[in-house]
């Protein structure tokens, strides 16, 4: 196993509390090319704990790229330099022997650092609670395919629904804008018949909460689309803009 190990210098962000200053600490590590970046952090933590030091705090859950919990900025790229890949799916074979990596938390006023690499993403929860739902009647389950949806529309809605809410779009954006996330959530429901009852209230409510939670606005640089681990398209942002503008014209009495 030792034969094909590569040597990396890892500069990892350490920050004790939300208010403390924080700084990079250097760790020199021999790593297996098959290990993921989170597994390297696990290894470093084993060493640190053995030495009686405080381990590096970071978030992860499924480790198969679908939950959106992990999220580190590696060399200036949220989820690392590989396109359409979550942090947990980023393996060390993508790096060269002797390379230096900078591993940082997502940086945005809306995502304050809690500890080391963990940030508070509750701003996203608040946006979701404001409108990321549909109303339906409880009782017996409705028949499948009861409501007919054209294939192309279903595809678009599912493409938007691929968003895992990880926050990489905010982390990548020079304005820390949450537009791609909110646009994906708005689009996924606006496209489908099930989402029509709250359609125009939803977009207004979600944008309102987005603006209240320190997220910036969109300059159409499209860094979000480039860094999104699920490849959510910025055409969803255009759709949200459309929905929002139409909402002003259609539902004056609903405007907050």
């Amino acid at each position: 196993m030792n034969g094909n190990h590569i040597h990396l210098t890892l500069n990892i962000w350490r920050q004790e509390t939300p208010s403390s200053k924080g700084n990079f600490e250097e760790y020199k590590q021999n790593v297996s090319p098959d290990a993921s970046i989170l597994e390297i952090l696990d290894e470093i933590n084993n060493h640190l704990e053995a030495e009686g030091k405080r381990p590096i705090a970071f978030e992860s859950d499924c480790r198969e790229g679908i939950c959106g919990t992990c999220g580190l900025v590696i060399n200036g790229h949220p989820h690392g330099p590989l396109p359409k890949t979550a942090t947990c799916q980023l393996h060390m074979r993508n790096f060269n022997d002797g390379e230096t990596l900078y591993i940082e938390p997502f940086r945005a006023a809306a995502f304050p650092v809690i500890k080391d690499l963990i940030v508070d993403r509750s701003g996203f929860d608040k946006i979701q609670q404001a409108g990321g739902y549909v109303s339906f009647n409880t009782g017996s389950a409705p028949d499948a395919n009861n409501i007919l949806i054209p294939k192309q529309i279903a595809d678009l809605a599912l493409d938007a629904a691929e968003c895992i809410g990880c926050g990489a779009c905010v982390a990548a954006c020079k304005n820390s804008s949450a537009m791609l996330f909110v646009a994906a959530k708005v689009s996924q429901f606006a496209l489908l018949p099930q989402g029509q009852s709250e359609r125009y209230e939803r977009v207004q409510a979600m944008v309102k909460v987005m603006d209240e939670n320190l997220f910036g606005s969109c300059t159409n640089t499209y860094a979000c689309e480039a860094e999104c681990p699920k490849g959510i398209s910025v055409s969803n942002i255009a759709r949200m803009n459309r929905e929002y503008i139409v909402a002003q014209l259609k539902t004056e009495e609903l405007a907050h």
């Binding site: 900025v73 200036g76 900078y102 940082e104 006023a109 020079k174 480039a226």
Partner: peptide
């Protein structure tokens, strides 16, 4: 937008994605 994004990354990746 400056206020929304006060801290910059150690490595600037924006050249590659914008």
């Amino acid at each position: 937008n400056k206020k929304a994004n006060p801290k910059k990354y150690a490595v600037n990746g924006s050249r590659e994605n914008t």
